[in-house]
């Protein structure tokens, strides 16, 4: 089966971001960018399904700036077959991304689309569900296990109280949770080979997608800072402080 994986270029998860002085956003100038960690898990799962003989082709797609080509090349080095970049300005909302992905799904007709459960920049956790709505496919969100069984997909999901198993008709949309797998590293020969794999660039206009949004960010602020705490010398002192100073026990 043909598979599609959506990936996002985001600020590296180890970077401590700073809010811009004019409150227009966070400062992303000269900070390290990477593939969103949940997207890495999505790519890994697709590659494993290909290695298991389930997937025949993996198309990796990103909706974002020209620089997202770097992350698409990374995905190609990890085992994706070809890449599509829907070139658009930064800071798209989830619905716009879902609409762009829907246009690619219509064209490519994958049986399974895997996305990360959320991007670590916007923390929205929306795009996969929105794509499922627009395509009218079933959704298996927060997946910690995925199994193709004939024309069905068995998904184990991480839910608040534990785990839930569901069965979905294919084609379907899956979003990955952290426990789904441990992503591999790209080897140097594979990074070199990935440079020769096809990477197509399209515009939202060419796909007939409007990126208009009903949400507008008015302001971005730093969270209220916690006042500095103290170090206590002993357990007895800790208990005393918690009882008499903080009054929480």
């Amino acid at each position: 089966m043909k598979m599609m994986v959506a990936i996002k270029r985001v600020v590296d998860y180890n970077v401590k971001v700073r809010v811009k002085a004019d409150h227009s956003g966070v400062d992303l100038a000269n900070v390290k960018m990477s593939m969103n960690p949940f997207c890495e898990i999505a790519v890994e799962e697709a590659v494993r399904l290909k290695e298991a003989g389930v997937a025949t082709e993996i198309v990796v797609v990103s909706v974002g700036p020209t620089t997202a080509q770097e992350q698409l090349r990374t995905a190609l080095a990890l085992g994706a077959d070809r890449a599509i970049l829907v070139e658009a300005a930064d800071e798209l909302n989830s619905l716009a991304v879902a609409k762009a992905l829907k246009a690619v799904v219509d064209k490519e007709q994958p049986q399974l689309v895997i996305l990360g459960k959320q991007a670590i920049d916007s923390d929205n956790n929306q795009t996969g569900q929105m794509l499922a709505a627009l395509t009218d496919y079933a959704q298996g969100t927060f997946a910690s296990k995925v199994e193709v069984a004939g024309d069905k997909l068995n998904v184990t999901r991480e839910i608040d109280g534990g785990l839930q198993a569901i069965s979905l008709n294919l084609p379907a949309i899956v979003t990955t949770d952290l426990r789904l797998n441990e992503p591999r590293y790209a080897s140097l020969p594979n990074i070199m080979k990935a440079k020769k794999k096809p990477l197509e660039t399209v515009t939202p206009d060419a796909l007939g997608v409007s990126l208009a949004s009903t949400n507008k960010t008015l302001k971005v602020e730093a969270p209220a800072a916690r006042s500095a705490g103290i170090k206590v010398k002993s357990v007895a002192e800790l208990v005393e402080k918690l009882k008499n100073e903080a009054k929480v026990i």
């Binding site: 619905l95 879902a98 929205n124 569900q129 929105m130 499922a132 927060f142 999901r157 839910i159």
Partner: peptide, 23 residues
């Protein structure tokens, strides 16, 4: 914003063609 809420609501938003505000 429980796992059920996060699972269902974006699907609702997309069917209504509006952006969602999360959490």
């Amino acid at each position: 914003a429980t796992t059920n809420g996060k699972n269902i609501l974006p699907r609702v938003a997309a069917l209504l063609h509006v952006d969602q505000i999360s959490e």
